[in-house]
């Protein structure tokens, strides 16, 4: 595919236009990536709000009634429920891997099986997150089948 990049002035809105013969999986992936690249989310540290780029989030964890997003350096509290986060960003390469964790597929270094049908995902940060047994088939379907 031929790629063209054109610089525009600050007054104009940035946009990406894909000219293709058919909207196949590759095109859908590119669209999904472009959408995710520009997305930000409000995160709170000590009641101070910051904008976090979705791409910087390694994983999101629900602890009691609070939800936290983990980036390489900081932990932000999100003012939403875990199910709301996954509903909004599932098609942005986020995957619910257990009852209380959502993981960024782009931040997984590798996965390996552990006892009882579960997998352990090692992130680029070195942290390890368990992928629950019930979510393993969904991960396989999402990654190996279709619908990335």
């Amino acid at each position: 595919m031929k790629v063209s990049v054109k610089q525009i002035g600050r007054g104009q809105e940035e946009q990406a236009i894909i000219l293709c013969y058919e909207v196949n999986e590759n095109v859908k992936n590119i669209v999904s990536y472009i959408k995710a690249a520009g997305d930000t989310l409000a995160g709170y540290v000590d009641e101070r709000v910051s904008q976090i780029s979705l791409q910087d989030i390694f994983y999101v964890e629900a602890v009691d009634d609070r939800v936290f997003a983990y980036t390489a350096k900081k932990v932000y509290e999100l003012k939403c429920k875990l199910y709301e986060f996954i509903t909004l960003f599932e098609n942005r390469r986020f995957f619910r891997c257990s009852k209380s964790f959502v993981i960024n597929l782009m931040k997984i270094d590798n996965v390996r099986p552990i006892l009882n049908g579960r997998f352990l995902a090692t992130l680029f940060s070195g942290e390890e997150i368990i992928i629950s047994r019930q979510y393993v088939p969904e991960l396989k379907k999402r990654l190996l089948g279709e619908n990335i």
Partner: peptide, 24 residues
């Protein structure tokens, strides 16, 4: 044998993840 199946799945998942991340 069950472990070997899981290992095979993990290998395929890792391959797809690398391809996905490399492409992006």
């Amino acid at each position: 044998i069950s472990w070997q199946f899981d290992k095979k799945d993990a290998g395929e998942i890792n391959k797809t993840l690398k391809s996905l991340q490399g492409r992006s």
